[in-house]
Design a protein around this nucleic acid. Structure first.
Lengths: 205, 205
DNA sequence: CCTATTTGGAAACAATCATTTCCTAATTGG
DNA sequence: CCAATTAGGAAATGATTGTTTCCAAATAGG
């Protein structure tokens, strides 16, 4: 029995995995987003991920673990894209607009129909699944905090009205964004979706 | 073979049903709201509704029919309550406030955790279930139209700013309301929920 | 009172569910 | 090159799924 401090890059003993875990999770994200957790069977996942049950259960403990891993990857990818977008923001107001536009972009057309995995998880699993609920709450908190920070930044740089309440307004914008994801399920037009963004922006005047 | 134009009140031949359909559907609504369609088994429904499988399948064609009947009753009850609330409105602005408050009231605490059956249906079933999707769309349209009518009424009676665009603003309010239902799944406080309503109302100034 | 009709309810149904088992294949370390 | 370890994959697992069947009970109309 020896203490193992091997780097993660070192390949473990045994036959190497023949598929990329993240690529497989990306397929799982699509299925879970479209069909939900209970609506997705292991067969659905096998087919979408191109794996046999054996491989699935060697890579993940069970269906629930596949779901949580999919959720985590979904958030990681989406957050990275959002951060990239927010890095371009010239001021607080521009940041809010970019953030709203980022979600509006995902809430219409095919992506809107597919849905948001965080919203789906909140609606389907948050009551009885503590691990899922914790992840949803963390995700919502992050959005709210980011909105609030952008509003405060705008109030300092003069692009956002100083008399509005940052936290309450951030929470309203969070509601709008989650609501757009729900409405996106009935595939509204791009214009319809972005008109909501335009109205929301007037709150900063 | 004779043409039957008997009133619906006349009892048909055969053993009479021993349970009230609407009461049973109210139990089903709770289960479907909490667990979703795929997360709810016939056993769950039997237990909640206090019925045997035989009785269930004599009253309804199948699980899907139970769900649609539950959805229809949910909307009927909620719409009746909303109409009652809106009848008290003194002007357009007051109507918008009452409508927002009506949903905020249902979106926090235990009711918020339980969730909205329309939102759950939109998220879980709208893509692959046409009958469910049609019902969701009709429900959303009704909300949007009601909001828009209240805004126009407010613009006429002088309680709502005449320079705002009624349709776009109505759609934003619709988004807010749906978003509150999503956020309600992580059981926010009453104050947190209503602060969103207060901010939304400033759009009418 | 008899027939037709419908419900209540237990038991049975095939199908599908998530998961495991078992064997072979592929790799690492010694 | 051998032992240990892990992955791939087909087949089997028991449990649960939604639904049906069958029989007794309760009603209406004739």
């Amino acid at each position: 029995m020896s203490i193992d401090i091997s780097p993660t890059s070192a390949r473990a003993a045994g036959r190497p995995r023949e598929f990329d875990i993240d690529e497989a999770l990306d397929k799982a994200i699509t299925v879970f987003s479209e069909q939900g957790y209970h609506g997705t069977s292991i067969s659905d996942l096998r087919e979408a991920m191109g794996l046999t049950a054996g491989s699935l259960y060697k890579a993940f403990k069970d269906k629930h673990a596949i779901f949580l891993a999919s959720f985590d990857r979904y958030k990681q990818v989406r957050n990275a894209l959002l951060d990239e977008e927010l890095a371009k923001a010239t001021d607080g107001r521009d940041g809010v607009r970019r953030m709203l536009a980022f979600y509006a972009e995902g809430a219409h057309g095919d992506g809107g129909r597919r849905g948001c995995l965080a919203v789906g998880t909140a609606v389907e699993l948050a009551i009885f699944d503590d691990e899922a609920a914790r992840r949803v709450e963390r995700s919502m908190d992050r959005f709210e905090t980011t909105f609030e920070a952008l509003i405060r930044r705008g109030q300092e740089d003069g692009t956002v009205n100083r008399s509005i309440e940052p936290n309450a307004t951030a929470r309203l914008l969070l509601s709008v964004v989650q609501g757009l994801r729900v409405l996106g399920k009935t595939s509204p037009s791009r214009a319809q979706t972005f008109s909501v963004v335009d109205v929301a922006m007037t709150l900063l005047d």
